[in-house]
Nucleic acid binder design. Structure first.
Lengths: 333, 333
DNA sequence: TTGTACGCGTTATCAT
DNA sequence: ATGATAACGCGTACAA
């Protein structure tokens, strides 16, 4: 709140003197001890906070490096952000110092409350990681000042980096069909997500086209715990288990495997399980988890490249970059 | 690189006009279409990048909010950063908008190359997540302009948020001793980390004091893969397995469990396993992993609070805040 | 020690 | 109808 000029006024010295003292150059500039102490005390009393913006503005003999922000919701799966950042580590994107990364959390559905997207006074571009349908609707009507890239979402207005989630669902259905499976199920985390919705839709469509039986289970939590509880409920229910279950996130599948061990359900003999994401831990479950590889790291890279292109004005029309998912067959299915 | 004034010069208009046009207020301000197009073209040709610093400086009728940066090495375990950020989500730290989070990666051992710690022109304070011994040595002699907090490290010069890693090692040794175990082993990731070194040291000391046998295995990788490979090598070696193994990270323990299943080593009957961190997945391994709970989330909070205190100048002397680890007993040991 | 110009974008006031 | 001028925000550094 307090500025150097305010401090200068109170201390009856010039702004320059205050700057020198606060930067530890007091002795070097031969400012008297008394003055220095006075200045330091006033700064402390006023809770002086140096303005980074002013410093940057002034000191930037260096180049003006763009700020990129990652907008992610507080309920985003933890592993996403870490894989996302890991993706940026490679390809020397980070090391090249072409941009700075800012993390901006926001509440699901409240993207509209983020003034900074409209004023553009916090970053040069934004990657929006997990927009809910409500947020997407806001974006469709909004007039933003900064370029954005949507991760794992579709849009006609903005650039996106995405996979064909519907195709993924179809692929999984087909994968199960080829194995001769007739009765299948899907466990869906209970959240408003375009990707999850399309994946489910594709799966259901595939199931129906291929003439298989389907059970859908909704569960509130995409974590290990959610998967465990969904699996437990299924086991305890009176009707028999399907032959295979598709979990829409790997942590859920991991939780489910645990529940199966607990209740004596053998995988893959009694029940086959397939997850989604190809998280780092999945080759090491018992049995190793068959899952859908989501190229998060590559997509993270693509997001940054897209965004940098827009920021540098070398890209002007929104593009939809699409990556391929791939089923990684291991032991669980 | 290019500024509004440069564009103005080339377009033979005033800076204000350029600003209006680039912000989409051209029509509103009744700037002629031709002028607008000219300005936009020049801006594009020059690759104009708005200076966020200048915007912030100008627009901040709002308060000056401190920037906090998280300095993390490119080889930091991925789960750390995600649990760290998760920790900040709670306690409404994030939501309160008291600060902004910047992510700054750096190469292990090259903290000294980060100019921003000395110039203070990028952030008001830094949390250093995984300083190597070399980095700590640099910090000990350095004269920084911004306050810092060290996570999981000890220092007499700076504030730290830490656990007693040596005590953790002792605790684990004692825990195993109480179970009547005589022959134990420890699998250590091969990296220069104060925390890992102290944990090992405590464990070895405990083992010796309690008169147990010890085997130490060094492995290059703290991931699931590293644990799997270490375990595989142990199983294939000619000498018999110890009764219990202490893995210095949970992912390693998860990998080891997988290897045990693969080779028919029964846990906990043939071999007991204890991990470290209490990562989210550990209750869901088979058998559930006994591990040491590291309160990452609480520590993350403490880091921010410490740092904010220093930034606001309400805290001036470095403090060492210490948290407790706790053994979470499950089925694997 | 002081005075002051500077870095850059914004915007209210003023001028054809 | 079209646009110019200049003050401002805040810390820094050079000349005096």
């Amino acid at each position: 709140m307090a500025t150097i000029r305010e401090i200068a006024e109170k201390a009856k010295v010039s702004p320059g003197t205050v700057s020198f003292v606060l930067n530890g150059k007091g002795d070097q500039m031969r400012i008297s001890i008394k003055t220095q102490e006075k200045i330091l005390k006033i700064a402390k009393d006023l809770g002086y906070l140096p303005s980074i913006s002013a410093r940057r503005l002034r000191n930037s003999e260096a180049i003006n490096i763009p700020f990129i922000t990652i907008l992610w919701t507080l309920d985003t799966r933890a592993s996403l952000i870490s894989r996302f950042l890991q993706g940026l580590q490679h390809k020397t994107l980070f090391k090249s110092n072409q941009f700075e990364i800012l993390i901006q959390p926001y509440e699901n559905g409240k993207l509209s409350e983020l003034e900074s997207l409209r004023t553009g006074n916090k970053y040069n571009g934004a990657i929006i990681a997990n927009a809910s349908d409500k947020d997407l609707q806001y974006l469709d009507n909004a007039n933003l000042k900064v370029p954005i890239v949507l991760y794992q979402r579709h849009s006609d207005k903005y650039s996106t980096v995405n996979v064909d989630s519907k195709k993924t669902g179809l692929d999984v259905a087909s994968f199960l069909h080829i194995k001769g499976i007739k009765k299948v199920g899907m466990v869906i985390p209970n959240l408003s997500s375009q990707a999850v919705a399309r994946r489910s839709q594709g799966f259901i469509e595939g199931i129906e086209t291929l003439g298989m039986d389907n059970t859908i289970i909704k569960n509130g939590d995409f974590s290990e715990k959610g998967g465990y509880e969904a699996m437990e409920a299924l086991i305890k229910a009176s009707y028999p288990l399907p032959e295979a279950l598709f979990f829409l996130s790997d942590p859920m599948a991991v939780g489910a495997i645990s529940a199966c061990h607990e209740y004596g359900v053998r995988i893959p003999d009694d029940l086959k399980i397939i997850g989604h994401d190809n998280d780092e831990q999945t080759p090491f479950t018992t049995p190793a988890l068959t899952t859908v590889h989501l190229p998060v790291e590559e997509m993270a890279n693509a997001c940054v490249k897209q965004l940098m292109g827009q920021i540098n004005q070398t890209i002007s029309t929104p593009s939809n970059e699409r990556f391929e998912t791939k089923i990684i067959e291991r032991k669980s299915c």
